[in-house]
Every structure is written in structure tokens, then in C-alpha cells.
Amino acid sequence: MAGLPPYASTGQKVWHYSYLVICAAIFFFLIAPILIIIPLSFNAENFFTFTPEMLALDPEGYSTKHYRDFFTNPDWQVPLWNSLKIAPVATFLSVALGTLAAIGLSQPHVPFRRAIMAILISPMIVPLIISAAGMYFFYSRIGLQGTYWGVVLAHAALGIPFVIITVTATLVGFDRSLTRAAANLGAGPVRTFFKVQMPLILPGVVSGGLFAFITSFDEVVVVLFVGSAGQKTLPWQMFTGLREQISPTILAAATVLISISVVLLVTLEVLRRRSERLRGMSPG
């Protein structure tokens, strides 16, 4: 793909450049809808399209009033805080249980490994509406429906597959002779775990945790059913807004969420690089 050879025919050139244009268009399709939200969120009017003032780059056309609304209106602030109260606890549960289980699953002799794996990954595959329906029925019966812990448990269950997948992926590449070397050098099992194994699988654990966090932080369907008004989260508020009367504050909220995604993405990329460097997969 890197450039055309000097002997390329005209047909090849035309094809090559049109292919690049097609790819550019697809990238545009991927990224533009997200980026366009950002300027729209600074609209001085309550419109969802660019006003003539905005197109003329007139400062009058822009304002931060939707952000002011987002950060002061309890309709948005309460859900934001609910989300921030639910996601970290759910993430902690997923990561703690998921990491232990992933270590167990990577042992050489695990009975029914495939079946267990299939069960643990299933929350990612089963349609959310089905999980939500089942949880609604079951949690009502055991008194968890409409409670904080009900939502936390449900979200933790949804985050588990990501932790399992990322941590087992790190463990697959884990060289057993490293733990043997540690034992040989005199380290007991506990020290070997914390000094050798843990630091090496940490990138996997952290990225699994980020996935679990974003899963909970973005989740609407399950919380709609398992939660009650007291657990209204940010995505829930956005969903209600989108379904009922849409207010431009939603664009400000979306922009805030995009910034969070960018931060997470960068963190993940840094972790990936670091982990590859540790495993010597790419130099430098």
C-alpha cells in the first residue's frame, strides 16, 4: 500500500487513489458523527444544527450555556454522581473476581475449562435486554431490584467478560519459567506472585478494569430495569432525554463523555505499549 511503483499503469493509479479516497470517506463516517457533537454543544441557541452565526464563526453564535446547565442542573448532576458511585464499585468487583478466576483458568489442569469460559464470557454475548429482563425478575424476587447493590452486582456481571478476556490474554503469553526462576532464586509463592506475576499481568488487569468501568459507566438497558429513580445514571438520563424531549444539554453531556473516552483510550494505548515493551514484543 505504501506508495505506487514507478511502473504502475494509469488504471492502477486511478484505482489506487480512488481506494484511498474510499478509505478516507469511511474514516470520515467513523469519526465525524462524534466530532461534530463538540462544536454543536457550544451552540448559543437551543438548536441541533449549525446556526448561520456559528457558520460565520461569530463569537455571538457560541456559548457555554449548555455546559453551565450540565454542571449546575440537578437533573444532570444527580445522575452523574450516581454513575460515579456505581461504576468504580462494579469495576472493583469485576477486576478482583475476574483476575483471580483468570489465573485459575490459566492453570494447566482445569476441568470443564471451555464450559466455564463460555459461561463467564456469556454476559457479553447475551443481548442486554435479556439480561435486563432476567435480572429484573430475579432481583425483584430476592429484594435487590431498585437498590444500589442490585445495580452494582448487575454491572459487575456485565464487566466480568472484559476482565477475563484481557487478563487471560496476558496470562497466555506468561512464561512459566519466570515463576520457576523466582522460586529458584529463593522467593516463596506469595513473593513470587506479587513481585513477578502481578507486575507482568498488571497491564492486562488495568485494561480489563477500564473496559469494565466504561461498560458500567455507559450502560443503560440493565439499569433501566434493575435500578429505580434513586439509581438514575447519566446514560439513563441521556436516554430519557433522547426518547422524550431532547434538550441541547445532552450535547454538553456527550462532549464530557467523549473527553472521558479519549482519556481512557490514551491510558489504554500507553498500557499496551508498556506491556509490549515488557514482553519484548517491540523494541523501544
Partner: peptide
């Protein structure tokens, strides 16, 4: 013994998933 150890590591999560996720699906 080895299997049991692996299983002990997995079981907290398995129990959790069974209660928090599989039981609801079964209920449905």
C-alpha cells in the same frame, strides 16, 4: 489437588456469575 486449586480460584467468580447472571436468565 491441582484441579481443586484452580477451581478454588475460579469458584468465587463462578458463584457470582451464577447468582448475578445465570440465575436471572434461568428465571426468565
Amino acid at each position: 489437588r491441582e484441579k481443586l486449586r484452580a477451581f478454588l480460584l475460579i469458584s468465587p467468580l463462578l458463584v457470582f456469575i451464577l447468582v448475578a447472571f445465570v440465575a436471572p436468565i434461568a428465571e426468565m
